[in-house]
Design a protein around this nucleic acid. Sequence first.
DNA 1: ATGGTAGGTAGTCCTG
DNA 2: CAGGACTACCTAC
Length: 614
Amino acid sequence: SGLKSEVAEKLSDLNVSNFVMTPVKRNYAFERTDVPIGEQYVLKINYPYKDPAVPADLRGDHFHALLGTNNSALELFLIKRKIKGPSWLSISKFVACPSTQRVSWCKFEVTVDSPKDISVLMTSNTLEVPPVVVAAVNLKTIINEKHNVHEIVSASVICCHQVKIDTPMRSEDWQKRGTISHFTVMRKLEGSIFPIGLTKEASDRNQKAGSNVLALESSERALLNRLMIELSKLDCDVLVGHNISGFDLDVLLHRAQTCKVPSSMWSKIGRLRRSVMPRLTKGNTLYGSGASPGIMSCIAGRLLCDTYLCSRDLLREVSYSLTQLAETQLKKDRREVSPHDIPPMFQSAGTLLKLVEYGETDAWLSLELMFHLSVLPLTRQLTNISGNLWGKTLQGARAQRVEYLLLHSFHAKKFIIPDKFAARNKELNSAKRKLNADTEGGNAADGAADPSIDDEVHHGDQGKARKGPSYAGGLVLEPKKGLYDKYILLLDFNSLYPSIIQEFNICFTTVERSSDGNLPNLPTSKASGVLPELLKSLVERRRMVKSWLKTASGLKRQQFDIQQQALKLTANSMYGCLGFSNSRFFAKPLAELITLQVRTYFLSFRSRLTNMYN
DNA sequence: ATGGTAGGTAGTCCTG
DNA sequence: CAGGACTACCTAC
């Protein structure tokens, strides 16, 4: 047909020669106004990732929209193969990589021709969940005043070789003899020597332990080399540390760069062989915002568990310092050591051994905190529910979890999924901004006339992106003052927002959004939307798990408890992402409609109650 | 850049 | 000097 030959022509203009085109039936239900809502025939085009991407704004005589042009390969793989979090995969066809062609440090590496050769193993329920290896890392640093950077003087590692990820671990489970190993690598200060007695103490300890538990090196470079060798021997699945993503990893890689540690060494911090150090500082350098993308790419193949970030997510504390958390959560004392306290400690073997102890204790406390909070089982459950990447859940990316949950659901129902960065919106926004700048001050009624401007930052003049509310939320009634000494009735709704979404069948697929962004009407359609169905299944799964919980005991019980918590968390975080302007599934009209129903429901409930009890 | 809004208190700065 | 506009921070849902 005309469409096919036009597309073929456009593709060959882009030097794409090897492509497949198929007409398929697909649904659309999202915010692009240039794509018709509902089911229709579309042309599906497949070609290899090595060829250039089609520009999203390309148009032709026979087609007026292109979707999914910039989907990442990883996302397509996970969504199309229906891979939902850590699970057993069956690989039907593969070729083992010869050692000269490997791209990773893994003991076994294979090449797979087609993603279709990989599928989720359906009988995996009967298989045991394999344990993982977890290494806790803590660095002790001194400050180089001249360059104003941290330099590493000691690195401690505690490694736990048999960590379960399907159930919580009690102290006696992970502190078993033989499953834990530890070591510290230390170096002397520049232009000085180790204090008397340290070398003998180190060799005594190593002999007694039968392995290198205390390694003494002459330079920072040698320390880094040794640390990388030991880490690659452990080949851990998870790296853990307190503020490891904001401090230790950053320092480690910057020092490796400065000390000219060869790439064959520093890249062993991850599982991917790398030859060029990526840009380490890109974007946010704010405290507590996680590791930069460059740093994360260095540890590819391992998970990162930052107990500082986890605690901030899972606990309610005044301070999230390791000292404070050790006290309140683990009931343990911790000695704080600042970089300025360290140089004097190099004067005697005794104080230097104290430094070793402090480093290993910090690594230990962070590891203990991770077990205490059941970080691995909980994040694994959350990841299995949403079908995103485990590493992202560990970073606390809630929006991404909801994004993947919806991607999987809508793909399964043959929907075309919204693009990650809609080029159209970017254009629109920059055009708006330009317009605003041109007619500055002269548009008093802009907010009412054009709601799409509302998502812009309201108080963004000082670079702090704190937004004002962009739509109406819940309803808070003024309390009636007085002493109530007879009856006080407390009502608590079970997951109010998810219930409202289900009750009123609010979904992308059911609510008709007007083009001017006004508040939409309630859906009239009887057919259940994708969102309500999804929530229903989450609620049902939770109810089932809770029923198992009643009769289970011990580890099984804790496992079910974590699972039901994860299901609840997932259901409750969905509404927030509808109102989140950077979300891929951002739909302010839907969020507004939900909060309106919440307010209406609340008021009618109150009047029913006052009628009943007067 | 990395769920939402509502609402309270305390503080700063400015103005009539 | 009272009071408004604004911000930061905290908590509730």
